[in-house]
Amino acid sequence: MRTPQQLFNLDGKTALVTGGSRGLGLQIAEALGQQGARIVLSARKQTELDEAVAHLKSLGIDASAVAADLSQEAAVDALVTETLSRLGHIDILVNNAGATWGAPAEDHPVEAWDKVMNLNIRSIFLISQAVGKRSMIPRQYGRIINVASIAGLSGNPPGMQTIAYNTSKGAVVNFTRTLAGEWGQYGITVNALAPGFFPSKMTKGLLATLGKDELASHAPLNRLGDDEDLKGAAVLFASDASKHITGQILAVDGGVSAV
């Protein structure tokens, strides 16, 4: 019988984290690496990846990076191939790469809709499919963690104009549930984190407009997410501590979605 400490241990595990050069992706990569996993990060910009890898290595984490634009189908296959060449196999896949676009629904550009959908949900399907077929299904083991959002659990409050983003994250929620149902037979768990408001490059515009205090006031805990708040949940879903948990969506939002 393993102890809780042993169940949460990731020594010997490997992880691919998309959108891992900054923000929530880097926070998750840091958590998995500190628990012992070897990490490959992916994002579009090599300079940001270099900085992220240097940060992880300063913490004693075995990390490297592969630049890839996951909105392009060919880039997905190339990323998986390179990651497998470095790690040998992929135990943990964190689908975090994403984009948003703000515009009223009646004026939302179609090309912007397609950009958000291609990265936020199409790429998750493609990379999960590739990692599943080439590593997880043959080995009968895997942990897939999709980063959704509480924006995918409900509609927008007045003033929020992110219909493509919300729709894509709602798709991530049901993608998670559906894939969990299909791939459970292979020993693969599929779960999603649904963050609330975390200060990041993606949310800086809203933070500047509404202010930290106003945004925090909507949460029962009266605070925003910080640099630690996804770590525990990510390690749970990545480790054997969650071997009997699949198809679940965990809101990490200070209680916003509960009221």
Rank of each mutant, 00 (worst) to 15 (best):
L250A: 01
A99P: 00
T81C: 04
V17C: 05
L236T: 05
N156S: 15
I124A: 15
V116D: 10
L250S: 10
S168T: 14
P104C: 07
V235C: 09
L59V: 01
A180P: 07
L193Q: 02
L153E: 12
A208P: 04
A241W: 05
G20R: 08
D226Q: 01
S128I: 03
S21Q: 02
L84D: 01
S85T: 12
G23I: 01
L153G: 12
T176L: 12
S58V: 00
A54P: 00
H108V: 11
G98C: 03
A52K: 03
A234W: 08
V259Q: 15
N174E: 12
H108C: 13
Y165P: 11
V76A: 07
R22D: 04
R122D: 14
T162H: 07
H218W: 09
L16W: 02
A130G: 00
K57E: 14
N146G: 09
T81N: 15
Q248R: 14
S42F: 07
A99C: 00
I163N: 14
S239H: 07
S257K: 05
D91I: 09
S168V: 12
V76R: 07
T14S: 15
L215P: 11
F198Q: 00
T189D: 01
S64C: 09
D69K: 05
K57S: 04
L84F: 02
L250H: 06
P199I: 13
N166A: 14
A75W: 10
S239Q: 10
L87F: 03
V172Y: 11
V17I: 15
P220E: 05
F237E: 02
I188Y: 12
S128A: 14
A75H: 12
R44E: 05
R86E: 07
P195D: 06
A103R: 00
K57I: 00
S239F: 08
L84M: 07
F237K: 02
T176S: 04
A148C: 09
V76C: 14
G181V: 04
G25N: 07
G33V: 04
A78W: 00
A258M: 13
L230E: 02
K204G: 00
K212M: 01
